[in-house]
Amino acid sequence: MASLKDLTHNPDRLAGGHRLCSGCGASIAVRQILLAAGETPLVAGCATGCLEVSTSIYPYSSWRVPFIHNAFENSAATISGVEAAFKGMQRAGKIPADKKVKFVAFGGDGGTYDIGLQSLSGAMERGHDMVYVCYDNGAYMNTGIQRSSATPLGAWATTSEVGKAQQGKIQRRKDLTSIIADHNIPYVAQASVSHWRDLTTKAEKAFAVDGPAFLNVLAPCPRGWRTLPNKSIEHAKSAVQTGFWPLFEVEDGVWRQTVKVPTRKPIEEFIRPQGRFKHLFAPGNEALLESIQVEIDRYWDYIMDRCATK
């Protein structure tokens, strides 16, 4: 595991000057993950979304590594192709046999949980030597904050509106990390930009495995969460402490909680400061608020159960 000092010596492969909003969790996730990759040559891909449009505006590129954007739902399939090219060309002797390259595909929650799920599942099942990173900000931010299957229960979004007949998103979140873990790939982890050591360690492990690895990283979005840019890390931390976002990993099928939460805080601490949940505190929504706590408890128990040593 690299120390903070070690990490600071690694090259920063995402240049500043990109056009993500200040306080955006996406670039924090990318920088931490790329730092953990060290100096090994690396090819990165990214799905259409905030990260992509803000870092690759022609004729500029924030990526100091070879980079490819293809479309919205196929970051995994695209990087599958790049990795396959590496294997094929190495077999043909066009690339030196001892050359090592890492492959990483980024996608937002929309590009991963929803439209890109098939492409991701296929890539994981085929066993490409790649790391897939979902930066989960809980909505389609790039197109103006529409709900995704990662959007939390009760959250406002522009397609899960608040009004007399509806109070934000009706459905609970999809548990994507578990779904990918059930692909039985070598490494899967859930991480948060607030816990840099946990995240960079997981990224190191993900890059080290021979085969597919998946990281689901909570990446706050001040625009969509209706929060202040200087509070993103605090919100991400609160997500961990309330059990909204448990930190765990699944290494060769073994589930392990990586950051313990001695006394789990009420979910209200995570949601009250965020404008996207404001309506939940209006009179009449007490039952809804309560059901959100019930859902968080259910999810927490499920993950803890899987992490329990058997």
Partner: peptide, 11 residues
């Protein structure tokens, strides 16, 4: 999608 990635990779 994979063909696009592979071709951009130089294959």
């Amino acid at each position: 999608s994979a063909c696009v990635g592979a071709s951009a990779a130089g294959a």
